[in-house]
Structure formats: C-alpha cells, structure tokens
C-alpha cells in the first residue's frame, strides 16, 4: 500500500503522511514544536483513538496549523487510508 499524503506545506497548514506500521508511531516536525509540540501530539493521538486506528505511522510536517486543521487533515488521511486498505 502506498503512503497516504494529505494537506500542504503552506503557512498555517500541515502535511500528513500515513504508512502502515505494526503499532501506532508518531513523528512530528513543526515550526512551533517548542511551543506546541505536546498539543500537536495530543490532537493526533485523540484523532487516531477516535477513529480506532492503531496500525499506522503518522508523519506530520507542520507549518503552524491550529488544532482544528491538524484534526481535519488527519481525519481526511485516515478516511483515505481506510478506503485504500479496503481496496487492496
């Protein structure tokens, strides 16, 4: 299965890449990591939990996206990931 890539590297946005993984792993690169790294990680964990997803690697390249945008981008990525997984 190909990685799922969603979002953009524009200011206030983020690019999220999902790849299959045995367990949940999260990598965050953010221009606001020092100030908001924990908050970003929390949104990602909550969103994964909400969708009951436990077997992906989440790679976030963040350009200062607010929580709602990270949540929406990840939700979109998860939907695509699921439909790709169903097809294959």
């Amino acid at each position: 299965m190909k990685p799922i890539v969603v979002g953009s590297l524009e200011s206030s946005d983020c690019l999220i890449t999902l790849t299959p993984s045995k367990t949940t792993t999260i990598t965050i690169e953010s221009i606001v990591y020092d100030a908001f790294g924990d908050a970003i990680e929390q949104v990602i964990k909550q969103t994964l939990k909400h969708h009951g997803l436990h077997d992906v690697h989440v790679y976030v390249q963040d350009k200062g996206a607010l929580d709602y945008a990270i949540e929406a981008r990840l939700t979109s990525a998860i939907k695509r990931y699921r439909s790709e997984a169903d097809e294959s």
Partner: peptide, 15 residues
C-alpha cells in the same frame, strides 16, 4: 472536496 468539508466542519465546530 473532502478536505474542504472536514476543515470547515472542524473549524466551525470550534469557533
């Protein structure tokens, strides 16, 4: 299209 829906939903639910 789906991105727009999800972003707008998430944004307007919070603000």
């Amino acid at each position: 299209k789906d991105e727009a829906r999800l972003l707008t939903q998430a944004f307007l639910s919070k603000h």
